[in-house]
């Protein structure tokens, strides 16, 4: 199995504040990784750095994606190359039709891959099929992007976008937070449907619950900008029981 994503000794800062502090992580094709860790430890920062958010400055280290230097690419190029970020706080874009954005996104990627653009009919058919899988009302297509969506609806909308874009590497930042039980199952179903040997998924989560539905290959604990401990899925259970303190203590011992 080749490494899809390879992060080595990554240091970043935002303004004058250092956030990621020597983070290394390797995600192989076909794998599902879970990243856990206390509030403010840098999980969303990691996700945004991978996606190319320009507020974060990489001061040292490397990020390689499918053999390419990811740090050289603009955010939209990374997206077209198959990186998808499910946002912790999806932004509202009033007035912009949800279907319009979704279609523009799908076509941007198709053009990049030298494929013909999807026509309106084919697009609607595909979107409706994905929505029914996620238990979403087709009416959401005609609303403004995330405009007035409830917290859970926004998260489902992220998964809908993911399902339409079929990314190679999906990073889902707390997509499980704020979901009711049925929504959690639906979202898990959407994520599992994407699992395949040539894709990889990174789940950022605070809860072991999600991991009951989507079994991770690896679980990592992030604290103060670096990975303190990695293990298999049993690590998530252990964290749920014992909290993060023992990891920190074990690491500093």
């Amino acid at each position: 199995m080749t490494a899809m994503l390879e992060i080595r000794d990554l240091h970043t800062k935002i303004g004058d504040t250092a956030i990621l502090d020597g983070l290394s992580l390797t995600v192989g094709s076909g794998e599902v990784h879970a990243i856990m860790g206390p509030n403010g430890s840098g999980k969303s920062t990691l996700a945004q750095v991978i996606a190319g958010h320009e507020s974060h400055v990489v001061t040292s280290g490397t990020v390689t994606y499918c053999g390419k230097n990811l740090l050289e690419l603009a955010p939209e190029e990374r997206a077209r190359e198959g990186i998808f970020l499910g946002f912790q706080y999806p932004v509202e874009i009033p007035g912009v039709n949800n279907a319009y954005l979704l279609k523009a996104a799908v076509n941007a990627k198709r053009r990049h891959n030298g494929q013909p653009e999807i026509d309106a009919f084919e697009f609607l058919k595909l979107a409706r099929a994905r929505m029914s899988l996620l238990g979403m009302d087709p009416g959401f297509l005609n609303r403004g992007v995330n405009e007035g969506f409830s917290g859970g609806e926004k998260k489902r909308n992220e998964i809908l976008q993911m399902a339409m874009l079929e990314p190679r590497l999906a990073i889902l930042d707390e997509t499980d937070s704020g979901l009711d039980i049925d929504a959690l199952k639906a979202v898990a179903k959407g994520i599992n449907a994407l699992r395949s040997p040539d894709r990889a998924i990174v789940l950022v989560t605070h809860y072991q619950r999600l991991l009951q539905y989507i079994e991770p290959d690896r679980v990592h604990v992030l604290s103060k900008g670096r990975i303190l401990r990695s293990g298999d899925k049993s690590l998530a259970l252990e964290l749920e029981e014992r909290g993060y303190d023992w990891v920190r203590e074990a690491a500093s011992a």
Binding site: A51, P75, I93, L101, A104, A108, H112, Q161
Partner: peptide, 26 residues
């Protein structure tokens, strides 16, 4: 907002297209 632009770019849409999309929506 920068967040709106980043959101669109993360979906593969160029900054220019994102601006015009938001303006047209407005």
């Amino acid at each position: 907002s920068e967040d709106q632009l980043f959101y669109c770019r993360q979906r593969g849409i160029s900054e220019e297209d994102a601006v015009s999309m938001i303006v047209n929506g407005f």
